[in-house]
Structures are given as structure tokens and as C-alpha cells.
Design a protein around this nucleic acid. Sequence first.
DNA 1: GCGCATATACCTACAGATAGATTGGCTCTG
DNA 2: CAGAGCCAATCTATCTGTAGGTATATGCGC
Lengths: 179, 179
Amino acid sequence: MSDTVEKLMDAAESGIRLRGYHAVSFRDLAEELGIKSSSVHYYFRQKEDLGIALVERYAERFFAALDAKASKAKTPEDRIRAFARTYRDALTGSDRICLCGMLGAESCGLPSTLSDAAAEFLQANVDWVAKTLSGTMKPKARKRRAAHIVATLQGAMILASSLKDYSIYDSAVQDLLAA
Amino acid sequence: MSDTVEKLMDAAESGIRLRGYHAVSFRDLAEELGIKSSSVHYYFRQKEDLGIALVERYAERFFAALDAKASKAKTPEDRIRAFARTYRDALTGSDRICLCGMLGAESCGLPSTLSDAAAEFLQANVDWVAKTLSGTMKPKARKRRAAHIVATLQGAMILASSLKDYSIYDSAVQDLLAA
DNA sequence: GCGCATATACCTACAGATAGATTGGCTCTG
DNA sequence: CAGAGCCAATCTATCTGTAGGTATATGCGC
């Protein structure tokens, strides 16, 4: 992957996670890189294509980071903690909410391929947590707990970002994992 | 408040909660009401003014509905349940996420007066929950629990909306309030 | 080592649509 | 007649997306 594509995707991901899909334009991205907007179209024919590429890259990186952390964990509880830490690293490393949390919120206003991609990431998150909890809980309780955990992490990011107080994320997660 | 203003605000609130602030335009709103976009500017000089009016109306209605439900509750636990139900009614009554959850997510891309208004609503939510928990917990634990509760509800709405499965909201909340 | 094709990585220029916003004026009602 | 409510016309800025061109590099047959 060329340097320009990488920088383009970095700028786009950052913009969407901060301000939303519709607040990011090819022109702004181009300007940030010192190129023309038509050159952005050279790499991504449509904005939708860029969005999907971003979700794919994001999902890859997220699950790679998650696996790296979770594989060291001994207990299911520790693996859930690794999950929360992976979310937290994304937040504190950049002060940005989750890409797919943002796209999930905007989903009704997105091209359906893109909202589907974001939904897939979120579902994969819930599934990962549910799978990780297996052995410790019954299926129904596990499903509820998984939804709860992912919802809390996504919501806590938005809360922290809106209130400009990132300790809120830690507060919410501490209480979530206290039980 | 005239009929047109009301309808305008309804359409705008619905659009923002479904698709986000930047995906809603004066032209679309006007078209939905069968008037011209210049007439929308007659009622709201700038888009920002419309946004702020929406948050104010939303907050008023939310806390009115919340107080009506919570005043009937006997225990702190029941009041928290009333809080979750108020959120849920907003979601299931319209299949839309919270207005201020959406604006909170987009906050970095909004006029600061608007993102401040959204943040104020979210903070008021956290404060309400924290206040309601007083007597049952110590201050620090209360603060954490309040952040946790609001984060979960906001996140659960987004999850449900993105996955197009509103039972996810109930799952998350059931697990949240089980303890 | 030369000529030619092809690919990469941009560019200029622009189309067509849409954004938010303004000005001035019409019409109806009290 | 005054004001509320609305529209026509228009401005400027910006959006996504397209068409076609240019400079440079790379590979390939001869």
C-alpha cells in the first residue's frame, strides 16, 4: 500500500471518528495531504469505497490488537478486560470514538454497503464477547452480557468525547467489570 | 408555537436522530413540509439555531417524561428502571437513537454552542442518575455507576439501531440492571 | 541500448447537484 | 395598515464525481 493511500485513510478515519462520515469531504482530505481531490478519486472511486476500506482496515487492526492482548490472558474475565483495554487504547491513543460506533449511529444515512460493514464489525464484537464468556454462563445470559458490554464501551466513548472527560470511560468500565 | 415550527422541529429531530446533523438540510426539511427552504430560515436564522432549539425541546420533554415515571417509583432501583424505560420509549417509539447521543458522537464537527448543549444534556443525565443513587452507594462508586448506566443506554441504542435488532437494547439493559 | 507500450501517480478543468444563507416582496388576517 | 407567514430569486460556497491530460518509471522485444 502506497504512502499516499495510507495517509489518506489515516486522515479519513480520523475525520470520521471525530466528526462523522458526512463531515468528511474528499476536498478536505486532499488539502490535508497537499494533493487535489481528483487524486483522492484516483485511489477511491467513490466516498463509499473509501468508507468500506476504512472499516475493513479498522476491523483487521482491532481484532489483531485484541487477539494479541487476549491470548496472554488466562481467564475469561481477563479476556474481557483485554477487550475493554483494546477499546480504551483506541480512545486514549487518539481521543476519538470507535469508527464503527460512529458509523453505526449514522447508519440510516449511509450507503447500505457501508452501514452493513459497520454493523458486521459491531456484531463480531458482540459475538467475540459472547464466545469468550462461554463456559462461565448460560447462553441467554451470555448473550445479554455481551450486548451489555459492547454497548457500554461504545456509549462510554461517546460520553467521554462529548463531555471532554476521558476519565468517564474508565469510570463506566470499572463499574461494568466490578461484578 | 405555530404548527409549522412544530412540524419543522419534528422533521429535523427525526432526521438528525436517524442520520446525523450533517445529513439533514434545510431544503429536505422544507420539502417534507411542502414549503421553501427560505421559509425555514424565517423560523430558524441558522441551522445552528434549529439544532439548539431541538436540544432544548428534547431535554424538556425527556425530563418531563422521566419525572412523571420516576415520581411514581418507590425505591432508587425503581427510579433507575424508570430512567431506562424513558430511554427505551424514545427508542421504540421511533426506532431512533437519542438526539444528544448522536450530537455527542458528532460533537467535534458541530458548532460549539450546539455540542455544548448536547453535552449539557448528557451531563444532566449522569447527574440525575448519580443523585438518584445517593443513599445507596458511596460518592465515588455512585459516580462510576452513573457513568456506566448512561453509557450503556446510549451505546445500546446505537447497537440496536445499527444491527436493526431492537431486542439488543433490552438484552443490554436487563443485564445492566440485574445486579 | 532503443523504441514502444503500459502503469503509476498525480494534475487541470469542469459538470451537476446541493449546501446554508440573504433580500425583497407578496398575501392574507386581524 | 401592520405584521405574520411565506415565496421567488439568487448568492456564494461546497459537494461528489468525471474527462482527459502530463510526467515519470518500468518492462519488453529487438
